[in-house]
């Protein structure tokens, strides 16, 4: 038993079909997806580079990341909802695309990494004053996030081309 029929059903719902077949709606959603991606992943990148210790090493990480958080989350919400609509329209294509599976894997890893960081060592980040080299686990979280998001973007772009 495979999940293909489920994905085909999703794609063939009225909403999925009308998004896919619209000459206007699909490009608009894809444009929203790409632009919100650039802004929100761009801000995630800044956070990651601070955790790694490359960017603004003299500043407390919270002073760099906290003020950017709501912009990052707003962009993320746009990226996620537009992505969901694109998936709705092309669920069966996504199911057959190995690149899409890798994209989902790295998206999941990025999410787990952020969740783990926020609920463990990240809670003490306010006390990391004047620390040029952050605790090893914080640097690891920064590297992991950086690599995961680069992979999400690359495999996402690869999914759209339908190349394998």
């Amino acid at each position: 038993m495979t999940l293909l029929p489920l994905f085909e059903w999703i794609q063939n719902t009225t909403i999925g079909t009308s998004i896919r077949e619209s000459l206007v709606v699909f490009p608009i959603i894809e444009t929203v997806h790409v632009i919100s991606l650039a802004f929100s992943i761009g801000l995630i990148l800044i956070t990651d580079l601070r955790l790694i210790g490359v960017l603004m090493p003299g500043e407390r990480p919270v002073d760099v990341t906290a003020p950017l958080k709501r912009w990052m989350l707003a962009g993320f919400a746009l990226m996620f909802s537009s992505g969901l609509l694109l998936f709705w329209a092309e669920a069966a294509k996504c199911y057959k695309s190995p690149a899409f599976r890798f994209k989902m894997l790295f998206l999941l890893l990025a999410g787990l990494n952020a969740l783990f960081f926020e609920s463990t060592i990240g809670r003490h980040s306010a006390s990391w004053e004047g620390m040029i080299a952050l605790p090893r686990r914080a640097r690891f979280a920064g590297w992991a996030s950086l690599i995961c998001w680069i992979c999400v973007v690359a495999f996402g772009r690869w999914t759209a081309y339908g190349l394998n």
Partner: peptide, 17 residues
């Protein structure tokens, strides 16, 4: 295209901030 997109993330993200 992948590298163009990753470059865009760096450029637009930093300019946004």
């Amino acid at each position: 295209e992948c590298f163009h997109l990753l470059g865009m993330v760096c450029l637009l993200g930093s300019l946004f901030a």
